[in-house]
Computed example of a mutant assay.
Amino acid sequence: MKKRLIIGGMLAVAFAGLPGLSLAGDIANIQPIGFSADGKVFGFQEFGIEQSGVPYSNTYFVDTDSGHYLEGTPFHTELTDKDANLSKARRQNLTAARSQMDKYDLLTNPGLIAAFNPPTELGSPSKTIRYTTLATDGPPKSPYTLSLGEMPVPTPKGCAAVNKRVIGFSLQMIEKEGAPNRQAARQATAVPAERACSVEYRIGGAVVYQPEAGNQVHIALVLAFDAERNGRWIAVPVHP
């Protein structure tokens, strides 16, 4: 059975510095792994250290057509032994996920990190992101803009103790190749277990990939916050 995605979280670049944020919770780092050659699978790793000091690492594999996790994924690792550290957690997690990485040859097709908008970037918008799909210098060519909206959702049973409103989100592509657009890219009216108690979202980046045959695949990187201000990533497939 496929697990519901709505986002599995990713954008990666070494954002290993996020612990310096003036937030109460921890915000996961994200590292994209890559795409299958046909663009139908996207993988990324999310990692960090919980407020309790426990290092963790999660690797997600997303079906870019359905937005669901691939069967048997994601892979979650938390280490509580005395000599646990983030390096060990990441290595163990990637070892567990390696068969899927190799099966879809993800390291061969990294895609392009077209935009990145972390919460450490002061003054940047939290609900929109604008980017182009070609890494060239000069004026922007055929830009795209994604807009993130938030919406109320029924509160899951496991979130009954949360003292803030639990919400979902919608995602629109409001600019396509430089022209106004109103494409409803994805709506998350029911959030999966990993993000069930989210109370706020931020659009944190975009990754694009062009298969040799076929249409471009865009991945919106959405950061979901819980009531304790812990931030975890969701990778949302968008097909312009």
Score class of each variant (00 low, 15 high):
residue 116 F to R: 14
residue 211 P to S: 05
residue 238 V to I: 03
residue 134 L to W: 07
residue 22 S to C: 11
residue 58 N to H: 13
residue 196 A to N: 06
residue 172 Q to R: 15
residue 12 A to D: 11
residue 87 S to Q: 12
residue 1 M to S: 13
residue 228 E to V: 03
residue 3 K to H: 08
residue 180 P to M: 11
residue 9 G to R: 07
residue 52 S to C: 07
residue 133 T to S: 13
residue 168 G to Q: 02
residue 157 K to W: 05
residue 68 H to Q: 14
residue 238 V to L: 09
residue 149 G to P: 08
residue 175 E to D: 06
residue 72 G to C: 11
residue 91 R to K: 14
residue 123 G to M: 00
residue 98 R to W: 10
residue 48 G to H: 07
residue 61 F to I: 00
residue 45 Q to L: 12
residue 177 E to G: 08
residue 7 I to N: 10
residue 118 P to L: 05
residue 68 H to T: 00
residue 202 R to G: 05
residue 14 A to F: 14
residue 215 N to L: 10
residue 60 Y to R: 03
residue 4 R to L: 12
residue 194 E to N: 09
residue 26 D to M: 14
residue 172 Q to K: 14
residue 230 N to M: 04
residue 65 D to Y: 14
residue 59 T to L: 09
residue 72 G to I: 02
residue 168 G to T: 00
residue 119 P to Y: 10
residue 98 R to P: 01
residue 161 A to M: 14
residue 119 P to S: 04
residue 115 A to G: 08
residue 159 C to Y: 09
residue 56 Y to D: 03
residue 25 G to D: 11
residue 22 S to P: 12
residue 55 P to Y: 06
residue 118 P to I: 00
residue 54 V to Y: 12
residue 205 G to A: 07
residue 10 M to P: 08
residue 17 G to F: 15
residue 28 A to F: 11
residue 103 K to F: 06
residue 175 E to C: 01
residue 55 P to N: 06
residue 215 N to Y: 09
residue 187 Q to G: 04
residue 148 L to P: 05
residue 159 C to G: 09
residue 150 E to H: 15
residue 73 T to P: 05
residue 224 A to K: 04
residue 111 G to A: 04
residue 145 T to W: 03
residue 63 D to C: 02
residue 59 T to G: 05
residue 237 P to K: 00
residue 65 D to N: 13
residue 92 Q to C: 06
residue 48 G to E: 01
residue 8 G to Y: 04
residue 197 C to V: 02
residue 153 V to E: 03
residue 237 P to N: 02
residue 52 S to K: 14
residue 158 G to H: 10
residue 168 G to M: 03
residue 193 A to D: 08
residue 151 M to I: 13
residue 62 V to N: 01
residue 152 P to K: 13
residue 148 L to H: 05
residue 44 F to T: 01
residue 120 T to A: 14
residue 209 Y to S: 00
residue 177 E to I: 01
residue 196 A to E: 07
residue 148 L to R: 10
residue 207 V to H: 14
residue 219 I to Q: 04
residue 97 A to P: 04
residue 212 E to R: 13
residue 9 G to D: 05
residue 108 T to P: 06
residue 29 N to S: 15
residue 123 G to K: 04
residue 99 S to N: 13
residue 1 M to I: 10
residue 19 P to G: 09
residue 96 A to G: 04
residue 222 V to K: 04
residue 121 E to D: 09
residue 161 A to E: 14
residue 69 Y to W: 12
residue 94 L to M: 14
residue 159 C to L: 06
